[in-house]
Design a binder for these strands. Structure first.
Lengths: 261, 261
DNA sequence: AATGACCTTTTCACTCAGTGAAAAACGTTC
DNA sequence: GAACGTTTTTCACTGAGTGAAAAGGTCATT
């Protein structure tokens, strides 16, 4: 059933905006589409999309498979890796994440705050049947995950107010959905220095997370997740805090020295 | 003096092409630029780039830092993750790579073949001063790296011929640069089931690598690198082969079942 | 083989979105 | 304070981009 109509952008914008709309039509749910699907989702005439997609393909931002379906091209991927989020943050964080993973042998995550939610930048997991929720690049709510709470707790009060002022969607029975409860929770996180969340986002998963501070400002969060409701996850808190602190310091160093490799 | 009009780049044609040229101006070497740099590199008038960059920023394909410099935006990164190269292979491979990393505590790499060279898809490293050469997304020569050789050795003979027919650039004293020598090397790789390369690409580094076979066709390679010329890297061959085989089987399973998690 | 459903590709007259030189407005460094 | 490089705004002009419609493909179903 096509109940789509998520982008009814009748307001035909600039050529560039249209081109981006074409690219944006592809999503995690539908990473490849036919020309006409693309047109429908982007809300543009087929002929227009035909031309635009052709040019995007030329530039390798799109690619067509054997069947003629469009998906995002290698160029897109290559360029994505030049993004500060990846190029810098992920690269610098890797050794810390790996060491932490080595010590706890649980799934280790790195997330940053972007807009009003958190985004997973890296996930090191040994789990072969890992849930989709925490795909790298996935956006996750700040109020309902350990990494989100770790970031939010040490953010500016004004930002906290913005977030707690927005609707706080419920994902499980344990999700915190009122501003009051959220603020209380965040205070607790600040007190103990890390967040601990049990089944607030996904049933059956529990997680701890710590903020990564760079020059007094939170830049990311490192978390440990377990999908079997381990109740002793906190035994890894020291190592996690060490990883978070270590990463923070390293980022400060790199920010100071332009490029001290 | 006479610096009036120098248009080094051939004038990009369509609006879309120009927009892509603006994005394409950013590179691994210069991941962030001022507006006018952007214009110069893209070979477009400043006013034009000003407008285009504005729109690209709106769509979060570009972003500006505090100083007003442009770099690639989060959107670019998010979408890059939807690319076929990344999405599947990397996700499935992670547990195998992590286990291998756990066992050898050396830098572990995953690469696939794209066109006439290999591309690093993932790199797990504990090394904080890791060389730039093996950046994720970096393209590396098939003839001069362990992962490249591992892939090439088990490729179709026709493809091997194409590669060995091309110029084989020399990177170090140890680089194999003649078709004869390359073929001999590849035969050896086939015989022993893995590649072992010492200072063929980067001085001071040694690596081993094994191909990942999926239904009889090579799809990737898993490698272990060391930057201090460890001469006993081969002790990890069994684990590496196990990881490669494990990943191969997992990929076969997933190819069979459309989507079994 | 004829039908219909859905897709891709081409065409073409119209017009409005995109253009870029030039000038204004900043922000530096000497 | 002037000389330089930057970013931003303005504006008259015009060809690049548009999209409806028609033509051409491909694949089921009858």
């Amino acid at each position: 059933m096509s109940n789509v109509a998520q982008f009814p952008k009748s307001t035909a914008k600039s050529v560039t905006a249209r081109a981006l709309a074409v690219l944006g039509a592809l999503s995690a749910q539908e990473p490849s589409m036919t020309l006409s699907q693309l047109a429908r989702v982007a809300g543009l005439p087929v002929a227009t999309v035909y031309r635009l997609a052709g040019e995007l393909e030329e530039g390798r931002f799109l690619q067509r498979d054997a069947a003629g379906r469009y998906s995002l091209g290698v160029r897109m991927w290559e360029m994505g890796l030049l993004t500060p989020v990846h190029g810098h943050m992920r690269e610098v964080a890797m050794p810390f994440l790996l060491n932490l993973q080595y010590e706890c042998r649980e799934t280790v995550q790195l997330a940053v705050c972007d807009g009003v939610d958190a985004v997973y930048i890296e996930k090191l997991t040994l789990d072969t049947k890992t849930p989709v929720q925490s795909r790298i690049g996935a956006r996750i709510p700040l109020h309902a995950t350990a990494v989100g709470q770790a970031i939010l707790a040490v953010s500016d009060q004004s930002f906290i107010d913005v977030i707690s002022g927005m609707p706080l969607p419920r994902f499980t029975d344990n999700t915190v959905t009122t501003p009051r409860a959220l603020n209380k929770l965040l205070e607790q996180v600040r007190d103990q220095g890390f967040a601990h969340s049990t089944e607030e986002y996904v049933a059956g998963s529990t997680a701890i997370a710590a903020p990564v501070m760079v020059n007094g400002k939170v830049e990311a969060a490192i978390g440990i997740v377990n999908y079997e409701l381990r109740d002793d996850l906190e035994i890894y808190v020291p190592q996690m805090l060490e990883a978070a602190a270590g990463l923070g310091h390293r980022l400060e160093e790199l920010a100071a020295n332009p490029e001290s490799h």
